[in-house]
């Protein structure tokens, strides 16, 4: 008995060969495409040798020459920030209200937040275009923001809902109201400061999602509103080196946002790993 326990302990200290092989394979699969993109974006020529023949920052300089580069970045940021704004205004109060005043609607809200995962983005785009294109809303950024809001709302909802669960919003609200505060005051002065980490995580997730959004933007507005992902796809067909530099920019933004989310999550237990989980 004692002997098997010693064996077990040894097993725990050292990962087995099967573990090393699986994890090494996983790391290889996850990193090779990304590292290659970073290298390709600074390579002078890389189609005859294993490592690039030389290195240059020329293509990053060229990204600025690419027409639409700055305007597409600007459009992507406008779209992300407006969507975050709409999400905050709609989802924070609604989630709080349902938690405190309307718990019987919680299953409905949960279901509404799962639904977007069941709707392919092309289907959402087709549905919106069919209904709204004959109206003034057709081909307008407002329609796109509405679409992107629906698509990204689960990412805002999860962290906020988890944060509300963690702080016992009900008791805090009753305490606030017994001191004479209105529900609005409680939300602004008590609840929001307490779920701030959740709000930040949610906003960052929405930012990352919307910044990388391609399908809805292309199919609803197309060339009228060129965002960064649209420009990237265009350049994959025009100039590989510049496309690689664009890919690097979008990978880097995704990494930065993820690191920020992790950091915010560590700062507070409220936004748990589950809240960051976002599919």
């Amino acid at each position: 008995m004692g002997k098997t326990q010693i064996v077990k302990k040894k097993e725990k200290v050292r990962p087995g060969a099967w573990q090393i092989i699986l994890i090494a394979g996983f790391l290889f699969y996850m990193f090779i495409p990304i590292i290659s993109t970073y290298l390709f974006s600074v390579a002078t020529r890389w189609d005859r040798t294993i490592l690039p023949e030389g290195y240059t920052l020329e293509f990053y300089g060229k990204t600025f020459e690419a027409s639409y580069f700055l305007s597409s970045l600007r459009n992507s940021i406008i779209l992300s920030v407006s969507t975050i704004f709409v999400s905050l205004v709609l989802i924070v109060p609604t989630t709080y209200w349902v938690h405190v005043r309307l718990p019987q609607a919680k299953p409905i809200l949960d279901m509404l937040m799962i639904l977007p995962f069941g709707i392919p983005t092309v289907v959402l785009a087709l549905a919106l275009v069919q209904v709204y294109n004959p109206t003034p809303l057709g081909h307008s950024p407002v329609l796109l923001i509405g679409a992107v809001f629906i698509y990204s709302m689960p990412f805002m909802y999860r962290p906020i809902s988890n944060a509300l669960n963690a702080i016992d919003a009900q008791t805090l609200t009753e305490a606030g109201q017994s001191l004479g505060a209105t529900t609005g005051q409680v939300l602004l002065k008590v609840i929001i400061p307490n779920i701030f980490a959740g709000i930040i995580s949610g906003s960052l997730l929405v930012f990352a999602t919307v910044f990388a959004e391609f399908t809805l933007t292309k199919l609803i507005l197309g060339a009228r509103f060129k965002t960064f992902p649209l420009l990237l796809v265009e350049y994959t067909r025009i100039n590989g080196n510049i496309a690689a530099a664009f890919s690097v920019i979008s990978f880097t933004i995704a990494w930065l946002v993820s690191i920020l989310i992790l950091w915010v999550g560590k700062k507070s237990q409220g936004a748990s790993a589950e809240a960051v989980r976002s599919h």
Binding site: P33, T236, A244, F246, A254
Partner: peptide
């Protein structure tokens, strides 16, 4: 958590590069 959200054009192009 990060890589499962890497999809779309940047990922597709990374695979073209390799």
């Amino acid at each position: 958590d990060v890589t499962t959200n890497f999809s779309g054009a940047p990922l597709a192009f990374a695979f073209v590069i390799i």
